[in-house]
Write a protein that binds this DNA or RNA. Structure first.
Length: 391
DNA sequence: CGGTGCGCACATG
DNA sequence: CATGTGCGCACCG
């Protein structure tokens, strides 16, 4: 999956900058990583983004500007997000169990590289601290790079992931099955008129895509326009990454300055992913294609096909069905990984975030999307209908 | 120039 | 008060 090297490099860089008393902002990080390892600023930007999502790096607003923290070194003793209240007197902020690094690696030495991420901690903690972190989310919408007051809040990156629009109503917890409360409650961008919710796009869910896109948009700009951009060889990255969409987004939206009011990126349209018209072999069982659509319809607008059907069928999916499903939804490359790992419908239901992110050996970018947009959604609809069925 | 080192004023708990 | 941050500036290659 995504270069573990980057994890080390970036974390290392942040540490260096910190020790040098220089603000670890995107620009410096990119520059230093490039100097030291010759990595593309763009790539670094993307990798950093991934790390933020993994909570390996924390994006914070300190004294009015963005700054990044080596998650392994923060939140040691400092536990505060209360001041977040300044931004939004939300409900409860009692929970401060946030962010990983509890049971996980406790390597105070930092940059070393432990496993990509424990997921139990990851999910649990995230969920716990989400409420408070959501505060940032809102704020970050209009000022992704500079929040009002100095809230050194170790707010988790506001992005993490938006689990897409939740089903009609997401009342009961989807059973503490494999992936218990997957992070992300009903955090929904409070003020997002049409753009966001507009399911017009073929992509099953628009918002998460935006989430992903927005972030890089918020930070890339600074790097982009800064000298370090052009020279190196801006195209290499293209080949380096999947033609998915992260990059395009980042690039496309780079025209945006870290200015304000750039919450919903207008340029996220570049996501090509089309539903794929061929439903190769899923005939015998539920055609993945149908499922996909059912999922969209059922979950997003609460129409057609009932979730329970999916739930049922999912159990009958063969490895081939799973493969065609992911191929159909735009992840042909990653689909093979499911075949390799022999993931059938049942296995799919048992997959946890970490399994998708690390167990399939696929790149983090697509892996995140696959998990958030598909695996989780499928599991959700399954467990939502079957309530208690475990396996 | 760009990378470093660091005094000192601030922000926080 | 103890600590963590990072601005601003002097230095170095």
């Amino acid at each position: 999956m995504s270069e573990p090297r980057f994890r080390e490099w970036i974390l290392d860089t942040i540490d260096s900058l910190r020790s040098r008393k220089a603000r670890p902002d995107l620009e410096r990080i990119c520059r230093m990583v490039r100097r030291r390892h010759g990595s593309e600023p763009d790539r670094t930007c993307v990798e950093l983004e991934k790390l933020i999502q993994e909570h390996a790096v924390l994006k914070v607003n300190y004294k009015g500007s963005v700054s990044y923290r080596n998650a392994a070194k923060v939140q040691r003793g400092r536990r505060k997000l209360e001041q977040a209240s300044a931004l939004k007197p939300a409900a409860k902020r009692a929970c401060t169990a946030e962010v990983n690094r509890d049971g996980g690696g406790d390597n105070a030495l930092g940059p070393a590289d432990e496993e990509p991420m424990e997921d139990g901690e990851d999910e649990l903690s995230t969920t716990a601290g989400l409420d408070s972190s959501m505060d940032e989310e809102e704020a970050s919408l209009d000022a992704p790079c500079m929040q009002s007051t100095a809230d050194s809040g170790i707010g988790l990156s506001p992005i993490t992931d938006a689990g897409a629009s939740l089903p009609a109503a997401s009342p009961s917890a989807p059973k503490s099955s494999p992936s218990h409360s997957s992070m992300e409650p009903e955090r929904e961008t409070p003020h997002t008129p049409p753009e966001h919710t507009q399911p017009a796009a073929p992509q099953d869910t628009g918002s998460p895509e935006l989430e992903l896109a927005r972030q890089p948009a918020a930070i890339c700009p600074s790097a982009q326009r800064s000298t370090l951009t052009g020279e190196e060889g801006p195209r290499v990255e293209e080949s380096a990454l999947t033609p998915d969409q992260l990059l395009p987004d980042c690039r496309a939206s780079l025209h945006q300055d870290e200015a304000v009011g750039s919450d919903r990126e207008p340029a996220k349209g570049s996501v090509p992913a089309e539903e794929g018209k061929k439903c190769s072999k899923g005939d015998d069982v539920a055609c993945p294609q149908e499922i996909e659509q059912a999922k969209n319809g059922g979950i997003k607008r609460g129409v057609s096909v009932k979730p329970e059907e999916i739930a049922q069928d999912l159990l009958q999916w063969s490895v081939a069905d799973v493969v065609s499903y992911f191929t159909a939804v735009g992840f042909p490359e990653q689909a093979v990984a499911f075949r390799t790992q022999e993931i059938d419908g049942k296995s799919l239901l048992l997959m946890q975030r970490s399994d998708v992110l690390t167990g399939l050996s696929i790149r983090l970018g697509p892996a995140l999307k696959i998990y958030e947009h598909h695996v989780k959604v499928l599991q959700r609809s399954h467990f939502q209908e079957d309530g208690d069925v475990i396996s």
